[in-house]
C-alpha cells in the first residue's frame, strides 16, 4: 500500500489547444471524504476521468495506490460518471452480474439490500425505469463495492433536496471506511458537513486544499461562503474558456 492514495504531479491535460488542467499537484490520503469543488469548466470532470483511466494526461504523472491508471487501479476504483452508462437490453440484475464478474469487491447482497431500501425493483428492465431510478441503480452499483477509491462526478446535481439528502446518506453509510471518497460538485452547502477536506479548482489549477474545519476555524465562515467569495468575480472576468 502506498502512503497516499492519490498522487498527482504537474498534471496537465489539454483538449487540442484548450487547457483543462494546468500543473495540478495533489495528494490525498485514505479514509477521507473529499470535495472537489469549482465552477463549471474548472477541470473537475477531467481530473476524475484521468483518475479512473478514461483520459490520459498530456503532461505530468498520476498514481492511484502507487500505480499509474490501468487494470490494477480500475479494479480498486469505483466510478460514478456524470451520465447514464447503461445498455438498453439490461436489467439491474444483469448489471449486478457484470459487476460481480469483473469486480472482486462487489457485494451483490449489499446491492440487493440497497435496492430494497431505495425502492428499486432490480428485475425491471433499465429501459423502462425513470431517470431518477436509473440514477439510483448507478449509485447502488458504485456504493455496493468495497473500493479503495470512490470517484463520484456530480452525484447530487439535478436532484431534489430530499433525494440529495438520501444520496449523501447512502454514501455516508456505505462507503468503505479505509477507502477515500472524492466527489465533485458545485453545490457545496448541502454536503459541506460530510466532507473532511476540500479541493478548489479554478481554470484547471488547485487554488485551495484544506480541511473543512480548518477553513471554518481560520476564516470564520463556511466553505460554501468562502467558495462564493472566491468565485464571485469569475463571470465578470470572462473570455477564458
Amino acid at each position: 500500500m502506498a502512503d497516499s492514495l492519490i498522487c498527482c504531479r504537474g498534471l496537465s491535460k489539454a483538449y487540442g489547444q484548450r487547457p483543462a488542467l494546468q500543473g495540478v499537484d495533489l495528494e490525498l490520503g485514505r479514509g477521507r471524504i473529499v470535495g472537489l469543488l469549482g465552477p463549471n469548466g474548472s477541470g473537475k470532470t477531467t481530473l476524475i476521468k484521468i483518475l479512473c483511466g478514461l483520459l490520459r494526461p498530456t503532461q505530468g504523472t498520476v498514481t492511484v495506490d502507487g500505480q499509474a491508471p490501468g487494470v490494477y487501479t480500475k479494479s480498486i476504483v469505483s466510478y460514478l460518471p456524470d451520465r447514464m452508462y447503461f445498455a438498453d437490453w439490461m436489467k439491474a440484475t444483469d448489471l449486478f452480474d457484470l459487476f460481480a464478474d469483473f469486480y472482486a469487491d462487489f457485494d451483490r447482497q449489499k446491492a440487493m439490500d440497497m435496492c430494497r431500501s431505495l425502492g428499486v425493483n432490480p428485475a425491471d428492465r433499465i429501459k423502462t425505469m425513470s431517470k431518477g431510478t436509473k440514477e439510483k441503480v448507478q449509485l447502488v452499483l458504485v456504493m455496493a463495492r468495497k473500493a479503495q477509491l470512490y470517484l463520484l462526478d456530480e452525484p447530487i446535481a439535478g436532484v431534489d433536496p430530499a433525494a440529495r439528502d438520501f444520496i449523501m446518506n447512502t454514501i455516508l453509510t456505505n462507503y468503505n471506511e479505509t477507502g477515500t471518497v472524492l466527489l465533485s460538485t458545485h453545490l457545496i452547502s448541502d454536503i459541506e458537513r460530510v466532507l473532511d477536506e476540500v479541493v478548489f479548482l479554478q481554470y484547471g489549477r488547485v487554488i485551495l486544499h484544506n480541511s473543512v474545519d480548518n477553513i471554518r476555524e481560520q476564516e470564520g465562515k463556511s466553505v460554501d461562503a468562502l467558495f462564493r467569495e472566491m468565485f464571485r468575480a469569475v463571470p465578470m472576468e470572462g473570455g477564458r474558456f
Binding site: 453509510t173 473532511d196 474545519d213
Partner: peptide, 17 residues
C-alpha cells in the same frame, strides 16, 4: 461513531473528533 455520524449527517471522521 458511524451511527451518530449518519444521524447528524456528518462525516464519521468529524464525529470521531
Amino acid at each position: 461513531v458511524r451511527e451518530l455520524a449518519a444521524d447528524a449527517g456528518v462525516n464519521p471522521n468529524t464525529m470521531q473528533r
